[in-house]
Design a protein around this nucleic acid. Structure first.
Length: 429
RNA sequence: GCCGGGGUAGCUCAGCGGGUAGAGCGCCGGGCUGUUAACCCGGUGGUCGGAGGUUCGAGCCCUCCCCCCGGCGCCA
C-alpha cells in the first residue's frame, strides 16, 4: 500500500491501511499531529490524535523530525482539508529510525543542493524526474525489443581515441594508457556483421570542461546501428523512436509532467514526419534572418537557437560539410563536399538530442579520411577491417538520454536529468 | 580555456563615505482543537572563501589564490 494509491481513491472510505515512509512535513496543532508521509508513490497526510493513539505513540511522533522513517496504521478518509483530498487517521504507529535535523527545506541554492544531492533526491521534483527517465528508458528499450533489434554490451574501457583525443578521460590500464568510452559506435559497427541490427545503452564520458546547461561529463548514451540501412532509413527509425518515447511518457507520466509544470501541448505535437532541412538550407534560412554565417561553419548556440524557434516539433538537419563532421560519415554521392549525417534538434530551444549518419563503407575512402584527420590507421585496424571483409552499407545514431529527458520534462538544466551529475570538478556525491 | 556575476549565521540574503555584523527561515524553549512551505512569544547562532598588503582601524580598498553560478567554444 502506498500513499499514491490512497490519493487516487483506490481504497473506499474507512478502509484500513498500513503505510511505511518518511516524514515529509509535520505540524503540531493542539492535540493532533499532522504528519505528511512520503513514500515512492506520493505524499499522504496522516493525522495522529492523542486521544486515539495514546501518549506513547503521540509523544514519539511529536519528537520525530522531518525525514524520520515511520510506519503508521489506520483508516483512510476523504477529507477536504487534507492535501489531495484524502488522509489516514492513525490508530497505531511507530518511528522506525529518527532523523537528525534535515538540512534541506526547499529554498537552498544550486551548490548546496548539489553538495547534498544524496538527500535532495528525496524531493518530489527529483522523484518525478527519475520516474520520467525510467519511462524514457523503458520506451526506448520497448521500441527496439518489439522490432527484433539486439541489445549488446560494448566496452567502456578503450585502447584508443575514437574521435578527438583532447576530451577523453585517461585511466591507467595495467600500466598502459586507456580511455573511457565517448561512444560505442565503432563497436556497434563491428556487431552488425553478426546481428545486423543492434543497440546499446552505455555511459559515455567527455572530459571537456563544458560550462553549459546541456553538457555532462558522464551521460547515458543510447546508440543504434543497423546493416543495410541508408541515412533515410535511419532517420525514419529515429522519428519513430522519438515519437514512441514521447507518447509513452505522456501516457504513463502525466502526473509527473504536470507536477513539473511541463506544457504537454508541446509534446502532443511530436508526431511524424518531422520537418527536415539540409545544412545548406539551414544556412540560407539563418542568413535570411540576418544571422551572419559562412557555409562550412558549424552551428553555434545562437544559430541553433534561432533554428529551433522556427519549428514546433523536433526537426532534422542533414547533409553537412565534410569538414565539420566525423571521419566515419559517408560521403554524399551527389556532392563530395557533403556527408550523409543528420542531427535531430528538439524545439523550444533544447537543440540537438540525436546525431547520426550513414557510415563510410568504402575501405579506400575511410582510410583517406582517417589520414586527413591526422589519425593513425593502426589504431583503427579492426575498424578498417570491417571494410575489407564484406563491407555493408549501414547507418546508426546516438541519442543523449539526459538531453531527451531534459526536453521532455522541460528542465532548465541537464544536471537534473541524472541523479548523480558529473561535470566540471563535481565528482561527489 | 574565455567573458560576466558571486562567496557574510545551518539555509537564503542585506550590510560598503573603512569605525569592529544584521534580517527572514531553521534550531531550542513556551503557546495554539485541522495544520497546508502554519501562526504567536522568547532564546540560540559568525575565524564575513583563503593568504598577504594599505590603514590608528578592513566584510568593505589593493594583490595573488581557491570555490560556485550564468554564458561561449565543443558536443549527445
Amino acid at each position: 500500500m502506498g500513499a499514491g494509491e490512497v490519493l487516487e481513491g483506490r481504497l473506499p472510505e474507512g478502509s484500513p491501511a498500513r503505510l511505511r515512509g518518511w516524514i515529509h512535513r509535520k505540524f503540531v496543532v493542539g492535540g493532533k499531529i499532522f504528519v505528511r508521509l512520503r513514500d515512492s508513490t506520493g505524499v499522504l497526510q496522516c493525522v495522529i490524535d492523542r486521544a486515539r493513539v495514546g501518549d506513547g505513540v503521540y509523544g514519539a511522533f511529536e519528537e520525530a523530525k522531518r525525514e524520520s522513517s515511520i510506519v503508521v496504521e489506520g483508516t483512510v478518509h476523504r477529507e477536504p482539508r487534507a492535501p489531495g483530498g484524502w488522509e489516514l487517521r492513525v490508530t497505531r504507529g511507530h518511528v522506525v529510525w529518527p532523523s537528525e535535523d534535515f538540512p534541506i527545506r526547499g529554498k537552498e541554492g544550486v551548490e548546496f543542493l548539489l553538495d547534498n544531492r544524496h538527500l535532495w533526491l528525496r524531493s518530489t521534483r527529483m522523484r518525478d524526474i527519475l520516474k520520467i527517465k525510467h519511462t524514457v528508458l523503458e520506451a526506448l528499450r520497448e521500441y527496439y525489443r518489439e522490432r527484433g533489434w539486439w541489445e549488446v554490451t560494448p566496452p567502456i574501457l578503450t585502447g584508443s581515441a575514437v574521435e578527438g583525443g583532447a576530451t577523453l578521460f585517461k585511466v591507467d590500464y595495467f600500466g598502459e594508457p586507456a580511455y573511457l568510452s565517448q561512444s560505442a559506435q565503432l563497436y556497434l559497427e563491428v556487431l552488425i556483421y553478426s546481428l545486423e541490427r543492434v543497440w546499446a545503452i552505455t555511459p559515455s564520458f567527455r572530459a571537456e570542461k563544458s560550462r553549459t546547461r546541456r553538457h555532462l561529463s558522464e551521460y547515458t548514451h543510447f546508440e543504434v546501428e543497423a546493416a543495410w540501412m541508408d541515412m533515410e532509413d535511419m532517420m525514419r527509425v529515429v522519428e519513430e523512436t522519438v515519437e514512441h518515447v514521447v507518447s509513452r511518457v505522456l501516457e504513463d507520466r502525466g502526473r509527473e509532467l504536470e507536477n513539473l509544470g511541463r506544457d504537454t501541448t508541446q509534446l502532443e505535437r511530436v508526431r511524424r514526419p518531422f520537418p527536415r532541412l539540409t545544412y545548406t538550407e539551414a544556412v540560407e534560412r539563418l542568413r535570411s534572418k540576418g544571422v551572419a554565417m559562412e557555409w562550412g561553419e558549424d552551428f553555434g548556440a545562437d544559430e541553433e537557437a534561432a533554428l529551433t524557434r522556427d519549428f514546433d516539433r523536433p526537426f532534422f538537419v542533414t547533409l553537412f560539410p565534410k569538414q565539420i563532421k566525423a571521419f566515419y560519415m559517408k560521403e554524399y554521392e551527389q556532392d563530395p563536399r557533403l556527408v550523409k549525417g543528420f542531427d535531430l534538434l528538439a524545439p523550444e530551444g533544447y537543440g540537438e538530442i540525436v546525431g547520426g549518419s550513414e557510415r563510410e563503407d568504402s575501405y579506400e575512402k575511410l582510410l583517406a579520411r582517417i589520414r586527413e584527420e591526422g589519425l593513425d590507421p593502426k589504431d583503427y585496424y579492426w575498424y578498417l577491417d570491417l571494410r575489407r571483409y564484406g563491407s555493408v552499407p549501414h547507418s546508426g545514431y546516438g541519442l543523449g538520454v539526459e538531453r531527451l529527458v531534459m526536453w521532455i520534462a522541460g528542465l532548465d538544466h541537464i544536471r537534473d536529468a541524472t541523479p548523480f551529475p558529473r561535470f566540471r570538478e563535481r565528482l561527489r556525491p
